[in-house]
């Protein structure tokens, strides 16, 4: 009986992909997380999907800042001098 209820309760892949962020953010309630993980154990496709999302996020975190052009460096050096010369104002 329990087994039958559980099975009816199982997530399908299309639902899993909508829960991935909540899962990664640790925002799924315990019972929901267990259902999610149960699906993953049985589904190599959703396991691959989750991995792809992890890679996507990690890749975004490794983007390097664009280099500042020499002109911009010079401009900001000048700005810095003028702002310091003005003394501390009330920026907010």
């Amino acid at each position: 009986m329990m087994v039958l209820l559980r099975r009816r309760d199982d997530l399908v892949c299309q639902q899993v992909v909508e829960l991935v962020s909540d899962y990664l953010e640790g925002a799924l309630p315990r019972s929901e997380r267990k259902r999610f993980e149960r699906h993953l154990r049985a589904c190599p496709n959703c396991t691959a999907y989750l991995e792809q999302m992890r890679v996507t996020i990690a890749t975004a975190g490794r983007l390097t800042p664009d280099d500042l052009s020499p002109e911009a460096r010079e401009e900001f050096t000048d700005l810095f001098r003028s702002w310091r010369a003005d003394g501390p104002g009330a920026p907010d």
Binding site: V12, C13, Q14, Q15, P44, N45, C46, T47, A48, Y49, E51, Q52, V55
Partner: peptide, 10 residues
């Protein structure tokens, strides 16, 4: 609601 084509891991 299951994947129609298999997904390959990256």
């Amino acid at each position: 609601g299951a994947w129609a084509e298999p997904l390959s891991p990256w």
